[in-house]
């Protein structure tokens, strides 16, 4: 079942959006998509999701439906398996286009899935995206494993600050699920 068709209003169109996307590394060729549908046909997520359609995402970018696609939570369903990247006859690296959309969406809407906020906060705290329990670290010796190398949480926080992620995390809303 597809989503019901929606009217495209002229006022909603931002014709320069495709160029905003094509500035991102790996997303340069978005303008070349000719809607063959290979990406959707070969996408394992599209097989099980009623809504996730990379072909449609590409078209929405080309049409300039900026606000609509940036706020569409289904952009968070790409697993980055890169099958679409390998199969696209136009060399549109669709998984990278979706990464660009996600990055822009976080920046513009100040909204991201909760899981990414948690991973990022763990990373700043510990150097890893998970908080590894003390018991696990101690158990390494028992298992005959060398001690876990140290990390530099201060330097990670500095990286977050320099790349603009720190301020985004502080001001962003989160959402939990994408169905």
């Amino acid at each position: 079942m597809e989503q019901p068709a929606q009217t495209v209003k002229a006022g909603e169109i931002n014709s320069k959006f495709k160029y905003e996307i094509s500035k991102f590394r790996g997303a340069e060729k978005i303008t070349l998509c000719f809607q063959c549908g290979t990406c959707t046909a070969d996408c394992p997520v599209s097989r099980f999701s009623e809504f996730y359609r990379p072909k449609k995402i590409a078209r929405m970018i080309q049409l300039g439906l900026k606000d609509r696609i940036l706020s569409d939570k289904h952009i968070w369903l790409c697993t980055t398996c890169y099958t679409c990247v390998d199969h696209c006859p136009q060399d549109v690296e669709i998984a990278n286009v979706i990464r660009a959309l996600r990055n822009i969406s976080v920046r513009h809407l100040k909204s991201l899935p909760l899981v990414y906020k948690e991973l990022a906060e763990n990373l700043m705290k510990t150097g890893f995206v998970y908080v590894i329990p003390e018991t696990r670290i101690k158990k390494r010796e028992e298992l005959g494993l060398p001690p876990l190398p140290k990390t530099s949480p201060e330097e990670i926080t500095k990286i977050f600050e320099l790349t603009g992620l720190l301020s985004l995390l502080g001001t962003s809303q989160t959402f939990e699920r994408v169905e």
Binding site: F24, R25, W76, T80, R99, A100, R102, N103, V106, L112, Y116, L119, A120, L123, G127, F128, V129, P149, T151, S152, E155, I156, T163, G164, L165, L168
Partner: peptide, 13 residues
């Protein structure tokens, strides 16, 4: 070392 970066790529390249 620190996380490889993969889990953070979707939110900030």
């Amino acid at each position: 070392y620190n996380c490889c970066g993969f889990p953070i790529d979707p939110i900030n390249h």
